[in-house]
């Protein structure tokens, strides 16, 4: 059974997925950040692969990616860093990134290497479902990786059902049609999450975008299986030399 599936069998509420950027804040801090996320109670780690043109990300995550690229981060380097990470980390880990760097690495090589080091799934926001179905989905499956599609409040019901059927692991519910890290009123989101809940989808649902504190985390957990936090965690790491302490304080602000 996949690590993600296993997680949701054990725990179906308040699942916390935290995003971090590979190679940020330092080139070699990737594992350290992942370890402290696990220690503090992250259920899933979403590891972002930096890209020069990250369309779906807001300024904070893009800047962290820019720093990571300046630090020298590449996909090849990341797999090197992750070579033995399963000796120390047992929570589910998904890679998030954009198509272009993966195509250069070679899509099949990428899936093979991700699977070999022990990655559980992929989130590739600019891989469309048509290309997934005709070209890439079978490769992802071949290497036993889960693939997580995004849905938004603008996604039609029929399309939600389609994307849910193509996804494995969980479904990523974008809390509103916006880029990551944007401040927003969370009240309108509940209706949308309720709508998703009532659709009785095959996958668990994690809510992302705009989750930044205890209040927004609790709201998301009311109607979904958990939430994804990105920008707020990257902000918490900014200008901090002590990653463990910064992570600990961040989890306190969300969970306590």
């Amino acid at each position: 059974m996949s690590r993600i599936k296993n997680l949701f069998e054990r725990k179906s509420a308040r699942v916390l997925n935290v995003y971090c950027t590979a190679g940020y804040p330092e080139l070699d801090s990737t594992l350290q950040v992942m370890k402290s996320l696990q220690q503090n109670g992250a259920d899933i780690i979403e590891l972002g692969m930096p890209y020069s043109d990250p369309l779906a990300d807001g300024p904070v995550i893009q800047a962290s990616g820019g720093k990571a690229l300046a630090n020298g981060m590449t996909i090849a380097k990341l797999f090197e860093q992750l070579k033995n990470f399963r000796n120390e980390i047992n929570v589910a880990v998904v890679l998030m990134g954009y198509m272009n760097p993966i195509l250069q690495y070679g899509f099949e090589n990428f899936c093979r290497d991700a699977s070999t080091v022990g990655i559980d799934g992929l989130i590739l926001p600019d891989l469309p479902e048509h290309e997934f179905e005709t070209e890439y989905g079978s490769i992802i499956k071949k290497y036993g990786l889960d693939f997580i599609f995004l849905v938004t409040p603008e996604t039609s019901e029929a399309r939600v059902i389609k994307l849910d059927s193509l996804s494995t692991g969980f479904l990523y519910a974008v809390s509103s049609s916006s880029i990551t890290g944007k401040d927003k009123d969370f009240s309108g989101v509940e209706t949308y999450l309720q709508r998703l809940q009532n659709m009785r989808l095959k996958n668990p649902i994690l809510v992302g975008f705009g989750i930044k504190d205890k209040h927004t985390f609790e709201s998301a957990c009311k109607y979904a299986n958990g939430a994804i936090i990105g920008t707020a965690f990257i902000k918490a790491l900014e200008n901090r030399s002590d990653i463990e302490e910064a992570t600990k304080q961040f989890f306190e602000s969300i969970l306590k």
Binding site: L55, P125, D126, P128, F149, E154, T155, S177, S178
Partner: peptide, 19 residues
């Protein structure tokens, strides 16, 4: 219909732009 001229084109967009 998927926007391809030979091997090039398509719509590689995040779901937020889909509608």
């Amino acid at each position: 219909i998927f926007g391809y001229y030979g091997n090039f084109g398509g719509a590689y967009i995040p779901e937020m732009l889909h509608r």
